[in-house]
Design a protein around this nucleic acid. Sequence first.
DNA 1: CTTGGTTGCTAGCAGCGCTAGGGACAAGAG
DNA 2: CTCTTGTCCCTAGCGCTGCTAGCAACCAAG
Lengths: 196, 196
Amino acid sequence: MTIQTRRERERAERERLIVTAARDLAEAEGWDAVTTRRLAAEIEYSQPVLYSHFKGKGAIMAAVAVRGCEELTADLRASTAAAEGAHARLAAVGRAYTDFGRRRPALYDAMFTHLVDLPFATPEAPAPLQEAFGELLKAVEPVAHEGDDLGLLTETFWAGLHGLVTLMRSGRLPREAHDRRLALLIERFAPRATTD
Amino acid sequence: MTIQTRRERERAERERLIVTAARDLAEAEGWDAVTTRRLAAEIEYSQPVLYSHFKGKGAIMAAVAVRGCEELTADLRASTAAAEGAHARLAAVGRAYTDFGRRRPALYDAMFTHLVDLPFATPEAPAPLQEAFGELLKAVEPVAHEGDDLGLLTETFWAGLHGLVTLMRSGRLPREAHDRRLALLIERFAPRATTD
DNA sequence: CTTGGTTGCTAGCAGCGCTAGGGACAAGAG
DNA sequence: CTCTTGTCCCTAGCGCTGCTAGCAACCAAG
Protein backbone atom coordinates (compact mmCIF):
# COMPACT_ATOMS: atom_id res chain seq x y z
CA MET A 1 0.00 0.00 0.00
CA THR A 2 2.54 2.54 1.15
CA ILE A 3 4.93 1.44 -1.52
CA GLN A 4 2.27 1.87 -4.13
CA THR A 5 1.31 5.31 -2.90
CA ARG A 6 4.93 6.40 -2.82
CA ARG A 7 5.26 5.51 -6.48
CA GLU A 8 2.13 7.30 -7.39
CA ARG A 9 3.31 10.33 -5.48
CA GLU A 10 6.64 10.28 -7.27
CA ARG A 11 4.87 9.92 -10.57
CA ALA A 12 2.60 12.86 -9.86
CA GLU A 13 5.58 14.91 -8.82
CA ARG A 14 7.36 14.12 -12.05
CA GLU A 15 4.29 15.11 -13.99
CA ARG A 16 4.26 18.41 -12.19
CA LEU A 17 7.94 18.76 -13.03
CA ILE A 18 7.22 18.26 -16.71
CA VAL A 19 4.54 20.92 -16.77
CA THR A 20 6.70 23.37 -14.87
CA ALA A 21 9.69 22.78 -17.10
CA ALA A 22 7.56 23.20 -20.21
CA ARG A 23 6.10 26.45 -18.93
CA ASP A 24 9.46 27.88 -17.89
CA LEU A 25 11.12 26.90 -21.13
CA ALA A 26 8.28 28.38 -23.13
CA GLU A 27 8.35 31.60 -21.17
CA ALA A 28 12.10 31.86 -21.54
CA GLU A 29 12.52 30.98 -25.21
CA GLY A 30 9.07 30.59 -26.73
CA TRP A 31 7.09 27.49 -27.60
CA ASP A 32 9.25 26.74 -30.61
CA ALA A 33 12.09 26.01 -28.24
CA VAL A 34 9.97 23.52 -26.32
CA THR A 35 10.83 20.33 -28.14
CA THR A 36 10.29 16.94 -26.62
CA ARG A 37 14.03 16.40 -26.60
CA ARG A 38 14.85 19.58 -24.76
CA LEU A 39 12.01 19.03 -22.36
CA ALA A 40 13.25 15.53 -21.67
CA ALA A 41 16.75 16.83 -21.07
CA GLU A 42 15.38 19.49 -18.75
CA ILE A 43 13.66 16.98 -16.50
CA GLU A 44 16.60 14.59 -16.83
CA TYR A 45 14.61 11.74 -18.29
CA SER A 46 14.38 10.34 -21.78
CA GLN A 47 11.78 11.38 -24.32
CA PRO A 48 9.43 8.40 -24.03
CA VAL A 49 8.84 9.20 -20.38
CA LEU A 50 6.91 12.26 -21.49
CA TYR A 51 4.57 10.04 -23.42
CA SER A 52 3.86 7.90 -20.39
CA HIS A 53 2.41 11.01 -18.76
CA PHE A 54 0.88 12.86 -21.69
CA LYS A 55 -0.58 11.82 -24.99
CA GLY A 56 1.71 14.22 -26.84
CA LYS A 57 3.13 17.68 -26.91
CA GLY A 58 -0.33 19.15 -27.29
CA ALA A 59 -1.46 17.57 -24.05
CA ILE A 60 1.54 19.05 -22.25
CA MET A 61 0.66 22.48 -23.57
CA ALA A 62 -2.91 21.96 -22.44
CA ALA A 63 -1.68 21.16 -18.94
CA VAL A 64 0.44 24.31 -18.97
CA ALA A 65 -2.60 26.25 -20.12
CA VAL A 66 -4.77 24.98 -17.29
CA ARG A 67 -2.18 25.99 -14.75
CA GLY A 68 -1.87 29.35 -16.45
CA CYS A 69 -5.56 29.94 -15.87
CA GLU A 70 -4.97 29.75 -12.15
CA GLU A 71 -2.41 32.52 -12.39
CA LEU A 72 -4.69 34.61 -14.56
CA THR A 73 -7.56 34.18 -12.13
CA ALA A 74 -5.35 35.32 -9.29
CA ASP A 75 -4.27 38.38 -11.25
CA LEU A 76 -7.81 39.33 -12.17
CA ARG A 77 -9.02 38.82 -8.62
CA ALA A 78 -6.26 40.96 -7.19
CA SER A 79 -6.87 43.73 -9.68
CA THR A 80 -10.49 44.29 -8.75
CA ALA A 81 -9.83 44.32 -5.04
CA ALA A 82 -8.87 47.98 -4.86
CA ALA A 83 -11.18 49.23 -7.62
CA GLU A 84 -14.33 51.09 -6.73
CA GLY A 85 -17.21 51.60 -9.09
CA ALA A 86 -18.29 49.68 -12.16
CA HIS A 87 -16.10 51.63 -14.56
CA ALA A 88 -12.99 51.32 -12.44
CA ARG A 89 -13.62 47.62 -11.89
CA LEU A 90 -13.92 46.93 -15.59
CA ALA A 91 -10.87 49.03 -16.34
CA ALA A 92 -8.87 47.24 -13.67
CA VAL A 93 -9.79 43.79 -14.90
CA GLY A 94 -9.12 44.80 -18.48
CA ARG A 95 -5.71 46.12 -17.58
CA ALA A 96 -4.88 43.03 -15.53
CA TYR A 97 -5.92 40.78 -18.41
CA THR A 98 -3.88 42.56 -21.07
CA ASP A 99 -0.93 42.90 -18.72
CA PHE A 100 -1.03 39.17 -18.21
CA GLY A 101 -0.95 38.65 -21.95
CA ARG A 102 2.06 40.90 -22.33
CA ARG A 103 3.95 39.68 -19.30
CA ARG A 104 3.47 35.96 -19.94
CA PRO A 105 3.15 35.67 -23.71
CA ALA A 106 3.92 31.96 -23.96
CA LEU A 107 1.51 31.10 -21.21
CA TYR A 108 -1.14 33.26 -22.82
CA ASP A 109 -0.67 31.60 -26.19
CA ALA A 110 -1.03 28.14 -24.72
CA MET A 111 -4.26 29.21 -23.07
CA PHE A 112 -5.94 31.24 -25.78
CA THR A 113 -4.10 31.19 -29.07
CA HIS A 114 -2.72 27.78 -29.87
CA LEU A 115 -5.01 25.02 -30.88
CA VAL A 116 -5.31 22.88 -27.84
CA ASP A 117 -7.92 20.26 -27.29
CA LEU A 118 -9.44 21.57 -24.12
CA PRO A 119 -13.19 21.83 -23.67
CA PHE A 120 -13.85 25.52 -23.35
CA ALA A 121 -17.36 26.82 -23.42
CA THR A 122 -18.93 23.76 -21.87
CA PRO A 123 -19.61 22.56 -18.34
CA GLU A 124 -16.71 20.11 -18.75
CA ALA A 125 -14.24 22.96 -19.07
CA PRO A 126 -11.45 22.79 -16.49
CA ALA A 127 -12.33 24.54 -13.27
CA PRO A 128 -9.47 27.08 -13.40
CA LEU A 129 -10.72 28.16 -16.79
CA GLN A 130 -14.24 28.68 -15.55
CA GLU A 131 -12.94 30.62 -12.58
CA ALA A 132 -10.99 33.00 -14.78
CA PHE A 133 -14.06 33.59 -16.90
CA GLY A 134 -16.05 34.08 -13.73
CA GLU A 135 -13.80 36.93 -12.70
CA LEU A 136 -14.45 38.65 -15.99
CA LEU A 137 -18.12 37.99 -15.56
CA LYS A 138 -18.25 39.67 -12.19
CA ALA A 139 -16.66 42.78 -13.61
CA VAL A 140 -18.95 42.92 -16.63
CA GLU A 141 -22.15 42.27 -14.73
CA PRO A 142 -22.61 45.82 -13.35
CA VAL A 143 -22.28 47.38 -16.79
CA ALA A 144 -24.70 45.10 -18.61
CA HIS A 145 -27.75 46.68 -20.15
CA GLU A 146 -31.21 45.45 -19.46
CA GLY A 147 -31.99 42.47 -21.62
CA ASP A 148 -28.36 41.64 -22.31
CA ASP A 149 -27.27 38.06 -21.86
CA LEU A 150 -24.52 38.45 -19.29
CA GLY A 151 -22.56 35.43 -20.48
CA LEU A 152 -22.57 36.57 -24.08
CA LEU A 153 -21.67 40.12 -23.12
CA THR A 154 -18.72 38.87 -21.11
CA GLU A 155 -17.60 36.73 -24.03
CA THR A 156 -17.79 39.77 -26.26
CA PHE A 157 -15.77 41.88 -23.83
CA TRP A 158 -13.28 39.04 -23.54
CA ALA A 159 -12.98 38.94 -27.32
CA GLY A 160 -12.14 42.63 -27.30
CA LEU A 161 -9.38 42.14 -24.78
CA HIS A 162 -8.12 39.07 -26.59
CA GLY A 163 -7.99 40.91 -29.87
CA LEU A 164 -6.04 43.77 -28.33
CA VAL A 165 -3.52 41.36 -26.81
CA THR A 166 -2.96 39.17 -29.84
CA LEU A 167 -2.88 41.92 -32.46
CA MET A 168 -0.47 43.92 -30.38
CA ARG A 169 1.74 40.98 -29.55
CA SER A 170 2.04 39.95 -33.19
CA GLY A 171 3.08 43.46 -34.16
CA ARG A 172 -0.15 44.28 -35.94
CA LEU A 173 -1.01 47.05 -33.53
CA PRO A 174 1.61 49.47 -32.23
CA ARG A 175 2.42 48.67 -28.63
CA GLU A 176 2.81 52.21 -27.46
CA ALA A 177 -0.85 53.09 -27.95
CA HIS A 178 -2.14 50.10 -26.05
CA ASP A 179 -3.28 52.09 -23.04
CA ARG A 180 -5.40 54.39 -25.15
CA ARG A 181 -6.98 51.52 -27.08
CA LEU A 182 -7.78 49.76 -23.84
CA ALA A 183 -9.34 52.94 -22.49
CA LEU A 184 -11.49 53.21 -25.60
CA LEU A 185 -12.68 49.63 -25.22
CA ILE A 186 -13.53 50.15 -21.56
CA GLU A 187 -15.35 53.36 -22.38
CA ARG A 188 -17.57 51.54 -24.88
CA PHE A 189 -18.53 48.85 -22.39
CA ALA A 190 -18.74 51.12 -19.37
CA PRO A 191 -19.40 54.70 -20.42
CA ARG A 192 -18.17 57.02 -17.71
CA ALA A 193 -20.75 59.66 -18.51
CA THR A 194 -23.71 59.88 -20.84
CA THR A 195 -22.72 63.34 -22.02
CA ASP A 196 -19.29 64.87 -22.36
CA MET B 1 15.28 41.94 -75.14
CA THR B 2 12.17 40.01 -75.96
CA ILE B 3 13.77 36.82 -74.80
CA GLN B 4 14.63 38.44 -71.49
CA THR B 5 11.15 39.80 -70.97
CA ARG B 6 9.61 36.46 -71.83
CA ARG B 7 11.69 34.84 -69.12
CA GLU B 8 10.76 37.45 -66.60
CA ARG B 9 7.13 37.05 -67.51
CA GLU B 10 7.32 33.31 -67.09
CA ARG B 11 9.05 33.77 -63.77
CA ALA B 12 6.39 36.15 -62.54
CA GLU B 13 3.71 33.75 -63.66
CA ARG B 14 5.35 30.92 -61.78
CA GLU B 15 5.52 33.06 -58.69
CA ARG B 16 1.82 33.75 -58.97
CA LEU B 17 1.30 30.02 -59.38
CA ILE B 18 3.17 29.33 -56.14
CA VAL B 19 1.08 31.79 -54.16
CA THR B 20 -2.16 30.48 -55.61
CA ALA B 21 -1.21 26.88 -54.94
CA ALA B 22 -0.22 27.71 -51.37
CA ARG B 23 -3.49 29.51 -50.75
CA ASP B 24 -5.62 26.78 -52.26
CA LEU B 25 -3.81 24.04 -50.42
CA ALA B 26 -4.08 25.93 -47.15
CA GLU B 27 -7.77 26.58 -47.65
CA ALA B 28 -8.38 22.95 -48.54
CA GLU B 29 -6.33 21.21 -45.86
CA GLY B 30 -4.96 23.85 -43.51
CA TRP B 31 -1.52 25.38 -43.24
CA ASP B 32 -0.05 22.26 -41.68
CA ALA B 33 -0.60 20.50 -44.99
CA VAL B 34 1.29 23.20 -46.85
CA THR B 35 4.79 21.75 -46.78
CA THR B 36 7.47 22.86 -49.18
CA ARG B 37 7.49 19.37 -50.67
CA ARG B 38 3.77 19.27 -51.34
CA LEU B 39 3.81 22.78 -52.64
CA ALA B 40 6.66 21.92 -55.00
CA ALA B 41 4.78 18.87 -56.23
CA GLU B 42 1.68 20.97 -56.73
CA ILE B 43 3.43 23.42 -59.02
CA GLU B 44 5.38 20.60 -60.68
CA TYR B 45 8.80 21.93 -59.80
CA SER B 46 11.35 20.85 -57.25
CA GLN B 47 11.64 22.34 -53.78
CA PRO B 48 14.62 24.65 -54.37
CA VAL B 49 12.64 26.53 -57.00
CA LEU B 50 10.45 27.88 -54.22
CA TYR B 51 13.51 29.39 -52.59
CA SER B 52 14.51 31.16 -55.76
CA HIS B 53 11.24 33.09 -55.49
CA PHE B 54 10.77 33.43 -51.74
CA LYS B 55 13.09 33.56 -48.80
CA GLY B 56 11.24 30.75 -47.10
CA LYS B 57 7.86 29.36 -46.19
CA GLY B 58 7.10 32.44 -44.12
CA ALA B 59 7.56 34.70 -47.11
CA ILE B 60 5.14 32.57 -49.12
CA MET B 61 2.56 32.86 -46.37
CA ALA B 62 3.12 36.60 -46.31
CA ALA B 63 2.46 36.77 -50.04
CA VAL B 64 -0.74 34.79 -49.56
CA ALA B 65 -1.71 37.15 -46.77
CA VAL B 66 -1.26 40.23 -48.91
CA ARG B 67 -3.43 38.78 -51.61
CA GLY B 68 -5.99 37.84 -48.99
CA CYS B 69 -6.22 41.47 -47.95
CA GLU B 70 -7.44 42.33 -51.41
CA GLU B 71 -10.27 39.85 -51.06
CA LEU B 72 -11.15 41.14 -47.62
CA THR B 73 -11.18 44.71 -48.85
CA ALA B 74 -13.55 43.74 -51.63
CA ASP B 75 -15.85 41.96 -49.16
CA LEU B 76 -15.92 44.90 -46.77
CA ARG B 77 -16.53 47.36 -49.57
CA ALA B 78 -19.39 45.33 -50.97
CA SER B 79 -21.00 44.95 -47.56
CA THR B 80 -21.35 48.64 -46.87
CA ALA B 81 -22.78 49.44 -50.27
CA ALA B 82 -26.35 48.61 -49.38
CA ALA B 83 -26.24 49.69 -45.74
CA GLU B 84 -27.84 52.93 -44.67
CA GLY B 85 -27.09 54.70 -41.45
CA ALA B 86 -24.09 54.53 -39.16
CA HIS B 87 -25.33 51.60 -37.12
CA ALA B 88 -26.22 49.53 -40.16
CA ARG B 89 -22.92 50.35 -41.81
CA LEU B 90 -20.92 49.23 -38.81
CA ALA B 91 -23.03 46.11 -38.45
CA ALA B 92 -22.58 45.28 -42.13
CA VAL B 93 -18.84 45.69 -42.05
CA GLY B 94 -18.60 43.70 -38.83
CA ARG B 95 -20.60 40.89 -40.32
CA ALA B 96 -18.57 40.90 -43.52
CA TYR B 97 -15.34 40.79 -41.55
CA THR B 98 -16.33 37.90 -39.32
CA ASP B 99 -17.88 36.05 -42.24
CA PHE B 100 -14.58 36.35 -44.05
CA GLY B 101 -12.81 34.87 -41.06
CA ARG B 102 -15.16 31.91 -40.97
CA ARG B 103 -15.35 31.32 -44.68
CA ARG B 104 -11.60 31.53 -45.36
CA PRO B 105 -9.97 30.43 -42.14
CA ALA B 106 -6.54 29.64 -43.57
CA LEU B 107 -6.39 32.91 -45.42
CA TYR B 108 -7.48 34.73 -42.30
CA ASP B 109 -4.81 33.06 -40.19
CA ALA B 110 -2.07 33.96 -42.65
CA MET B 111 -3.21 37.56 -42.51
CA PHE B 112 -3.91 38.08 -38.85
CA THR B 113 -2.94 35.15 -36.68
CA HIS B 114 0.30 33.58 -37.77
CA LEU B 115 3.53 35.36 -37.15
CA VAL B 116 4.48 36.78 -40.46
CA ASP B 117 7.10 39.41 -41.02
CA LEU B 118 4.95 42.02 -42.71
CA PRO B 119 5.07 45.65 -41.68
CA PHE B 120 1.62 46.37 -40.30
CA ALA B 121 0.94 49.58 -38.51
CA THR B 122 3.45 51.64 -40.45
CA PRO B 123 3.39 53.59 -43.70
CA GLU B 124 5.40 50.78 -45.29
CA ALA B 125 2.55 48.35 -44.80
CA PRO B 126 1.41 46.73 -48.06
CA ALA B 127 -1.22 48.76 -49.84
CA PRO B 128 -3.92 46.06 -49.77
CA LEU B 129 -3.55 45.92 -46.01
CA GLN B 130 -3.99 49.63 -45.64
CA GLU B 131 -7.00 49.55 -47.89
CA ALA B 132 -8.70 46.90 -45.79
CA PHE B 133 -8.08 48.95 -42.69
CA GLY B 134 -9.36 51.99 -44.51
CA GLU B 135 -12.68 50.25 -45.11
CA LEU B 136 -13.04 49.62 -41.40
CA LEU B 137 -12.07 53.20 -40.73
CA LYS B 138 -14.79 54.57 -42.95
CA ALA B 139 -17.40 52.55 -41.11
CA VAL B 140 -16.16 53.52 -37.66
CA GLU B 141 -15.79 57.20 -38.40
CA PRO B 142 -19.48 58.13 -38.07
CA VAL B 143 -19.76 56.52 -34.64
CA ALA B 144 -16.68 58.09 -33.10
CA HIS B 145 -17.18 60.32 -30.10
CA GLU B 146 -15.82 63.79 -29.96
CA GLY B 147 -12.18 63.73 -28.97
CA ASP B 148 -11.67 60.10 -29.97
CA ASP B 149 -8.66 59.27 -32.07
CA LEU B 150 -10.31 57.69 -35.10
CA GLY B 151 -7.36 55.44 -35.91
CA LEU B 152 -7.15 54.09 -32.41
CA LEU B 153 -10.90 53.61 -32.20
CA THR B 154 -10.85 51.64 -35.43
CA GLU B 155 -8.01 49.52 -34.14
CA THR B 156 -10.02 48.82 -31.02
CA PHE B 157 -13.09 47.85 -33.00
CA TRP B 158 -10.92 45.68 -35.22
CA ALA B 159 -9.53 43.98 -32.13
CA GLY B 160 -13.06 43.18 -31.04
CA LEU B 161 -13.88 41.58 -34.37
CA HIS B 162 -10.58 39.74 -34.42
CA GLY B 163 -11.15 38.38 -30.95
CA LEU B 164 -14.60 37.14 -31.89
CA VAL B 165 -13.25 35.39 -34.98
CA THR B 166 -10.24 33.74 -33.41
CA LEU B 167 -11.87 32.66 -30.16
CA MET B 168 -14.79 31.21 -32.03
CA ARG B 169 -12.65 29.49 -34.62
CA SER B 170 -10.47 27.85 -32.00
CA GLY B 171 -13.52 26.51 -30.22
CA ARG B 172 -13.20 28.82 -27.24
CA LEU B 173 -16.50 30.51 -27.96
CA PRO B 174 -19.55 28.55 -29.08
CA ARG B 175 -20.20 29.17 -32.75
CA GLU B 176 -23.95 29.23 -32.55
CA ALA B 177 -24.08 32.43 -30.50
CA HIS B 178 -21.81 34.36 -32.81
CA ASP B 179 -24.54 36.54 -34.22
CA ARG B 180 -25.64 37.69 -30.79
CA ARG B 181 -22.09 38.44 -29.69
CA LEU B 182 -21.49 40.42 -32.84
CA ALA B 183 -24.70 42.34 -32.24
CA LEU B 184 -23.56 43.16 -28.72
CA LEU B 185 -20.22 44.45 -29.97
CA ILE B 186 -21.86 46.60 -32.61
CA GLU B 187 -24.29 47.95 -30.06
CA ARG B 188 -21.42 49.07 -27.82
CA PHE B 189 -19.67 50.91 -30.61
CA ALA B 190 -22.81 52.26 -32.29
CA PRO B 191 -25.67 52.44 -29.81
CA ARG B 192 -28.91 52.31 -31.68
CA ALA B 193 -30.68 54.44 -29.07
CA THR B 194 -29.53 56.39 -26.04
CA THR B 195 -32.34 55.10 -23.86
CA ASP B 196 -34.18 51.82 -23.99
C1' DC C 1 17.47 -17.53 -5.65
C1' DT C 2 14.41 -17.40 -9.10
C1' DT C 3 10.50 -15.50 -11.49
C1' DG C 4 7.19 -11.90 -13.31
C1' DG C 5 6.14 -7.37 -14.13
C1' DT C 6 7.16 -2.71 -14.34
C1' DT C 7 10.01 1.15 -15.83
C1' DG C 8 12.68 3.85 -18.62
C1' DC C 9 16.34 3.49 -21.94
C1' DT C 10 18.48 3.33 -26.87
C1' DA C 11 17.56 3.50 -31.48
C1' DG C 12 14.91 4.49 -35.21
C1' DC C 13 10.88 6.16 -38.42
C1' DA C 14 8.81 9.42 -41.36
C1' DG C 15 8.50 13.97 -42.16
C1' DC C 16 9.88 18.96 -41.73
C1' DG C 17 12.41 23.56 -43.66
C1' DC C 18 16.22 24.50 -46.07
C1' DT C 19 20.76 24.22 -48.95
C1' DA C 20 25.03 22.57 -51.32
C1' DG C 21 26.75 20.93 -55.55
C1' DG C 22 26.49 19.22 -60.03
C1' DG C 23 24.38 18.26 -64.63
C1' DA C 24 21.71 19.76 -68.55
C1' DC C 25 20.74 23.12 -71.58
C1' DA C 26 20.70 27.51 -74.03
C1' DA C 27 23.22 31.77 -75.75
C1' DG C 28 27.10 33.97 -77.67
C1' DA C 29 32.21 33.87 -79.71
C1' DG C 30 35.46 32.28 -82.96
C1' DC D 1 29.83 24.01 -86.64
C1' DT D 2 32.52 24.00 -82.29
C1' DC D 3 33.69 25.67 -78.00
C1' DT D 4 32.97 28.41 -73.98
C1' DT D 5 30.21 30.81 -70.74
C1' DG D 6 26.47 31.35 -67.89
C1' DT D 7 21.82 30.25 -66.33
C1' DC D 8 18.54 27.16 -64.51
C1' DC D 9 16.83 23.56 -61.84
C1' DC D 10 17.23 18.86 -59.93
C1' DT D 11 19.14 15.23 -56.83
C1' DA D 12 20.76 14.40 -52.54
C1' DG D 13 21.42 15.40 -48.00
C1' DC D 14 21.71 18.02 -43.29
C1' DG D 15 19.88 18.71 -38.85
C1' DC D 16 15.86 18.94 -36.77
C1' DT D 17 10.88 17.62 -35.36
C1' DG D 18 7.06 14.51 -32.83
C1' DC D 19 6.54 10.03 -31.80
C1' DT D 20 7.21 4.72 -31.06
C1' DA D 21 9.00 -0.12 -31.06
C1' DG D 22 11.67 -3.20 -28.57
C1' DC D 23 14.93 -4.33 -25.29
C1' DA D 24 17.54 -4.13 -20.79
C1' DA D 25 17.64 -3.36 -16.04
C1' DC D 26 15.59 -3.33 -11.83
C1' DC D 27 12.35 -4.34 -8.06
C1' DA D 28 8.80 -6.97 -5.47
C1' DA D 29 6.96 -11.39 -4.54
C1' DG D 30 7.13 -16.55 -4.12
